[in-house]
Simulated scan of single mutants.
Amino acid sequence: MRARFAGKSIIVTGAASGIGRATAMAFAAEGGAVVCADLDEAVHATAAAIVADGGTARAITLDAGREADVVHMVELAGAAHGGIDVMYANAGISGGLTGLLEGTPEQWADILRVNLIGPFLAIKHAAPRIIERGGGAILCTASVAGLRSGAGCPPYSASKAGVINLVQTAAQQLAGSNVRVNAICPGLIETGMTARAYEHAREVGKEDRIGRLNPLRRGGEPEEIARVALFLASDEASYVNGQAIVVDGGLSSSHPVTRQEFGKTAA
């Protein structure tokens, strides 16, 4: 078994399910000591599963967009595992399917707080601890929705576009620190965020249409994102910095969508 993260201290937010859970378990399987963080109490099950498999993990419930919670998370990881080597700011919310003109400032503020301010806080507070260890990696989950229109509701898309620029800016601001900052842009992945769409497709016998717009003609699995996350966090990606790595089955090579005309209801 590979052990790329033996002796490494790692934080993963949004670790209760989906991409976060898969990544936390993958880090632990390769020797990492993982702090699993999430607002959902199910994060404790993720940590328990890691420990049951012989790994090292502890769980913390928190609001990833609240600074006091992020500070506490970083302090916990530092105290428990001697510092921080990898920070994966993965926690996020979808915002539903609200159109641009139907959105409210409150909805926008909540999505931006979790999806964009959350990664900012993770970088702000984890980077100094990573620097203390001589360097390491910071990852953020963005989305193909942050690349261009057609893959998410307006506030979600805007928040993820912000994450992409945030990692670029952070990579520059941390120049000379030996801390690399990158984003992952998943396409359609089967997670709690997309569960309703997957369940509906299966209920009506249209599971074969899931992911039909990308060249691979399928949706992705959380483990497929986790493998990219581990690469970016490892020394194998030692010269990858300030990038948004797309993992979407080829969807964003064209971003095909069924466009709804303004003022008209889709048939």
Rank of each mutant, 00 (worst) to 15 (best):
M1H: 11
S9R: 02
I11H: 02
V12N: 05
V12L: 03
S17F: 10
G18Y: 01
R21I: 01
R21A: 08
R21K: 11
A22S: 13
M25F: 07
A28Q: 09
A28W: 05
A29M: 09
A29P: 11
C36I: 01
D38I: 06
D40Q: 07
A42N: 05
H44T: 08
H44R: 12
A45C: 03
A47Y: 06
A52V: 09
G54I: 08
G54Y: 04
G55R: 05
T56A: 13
A59V: 00
T61S: 07
L62E: 03
L62C: 03
L62M: 10
A64F: 12
G65H: 03
R66G: 02
A68G: 00
V71E: 08
H72K: 13
M73E: 02
A77K: 08
G78R: 09
A79V: 00
G82K: 05
D85C: 00
G95E: 05
G95R: 14
T98D: 07
G99M: 11
G99D: 15
L101A: 14
L101H: 12
E102D: 15
E102A: 15
T104N: 14
P105F: 14
Q107V: 03
I123E: 05
K124Q: 10
H125T: 03
A127E: 10
P128N: 11
I130V: 04
G134V: 11
G135E: 06
A137N: 05
V144Q: 05
A145V: 03
R148F: 06
R148Q: 14
S149F: 00
G150R: 07
P155D: 11
N165C: 01
Q168C: 06
T169W: 03
A170R: 04
Q172T: 06
Q172A: 05
Q173P: 00
A175Q: 12
S177C: 07
V179G: 08
V179A: 12
V181A: 05
I184E: 03
P186D: 12
G187I: 04
L188M: 13
L188V: 09
E190T: 00
T191W: 05
M193K: 00
A195Q: 13
E203K: 14
D208G: 07
R209K: 14
R212A: 14
L213I: 03
P215Q: 11
P215K: 11
P215D: 13
L216W: 04
A226F: 00
R227H: 06
A233V: 03
E236S: 02
G242T: 09
V246L: 02
G249K: 09
S254R: 15
H255S: 15
Q260S: 12
K264N: 02
K264C: 08
A266M: 12
A266W: 13
A266I: 09
A267Y: 02
A267S: 11
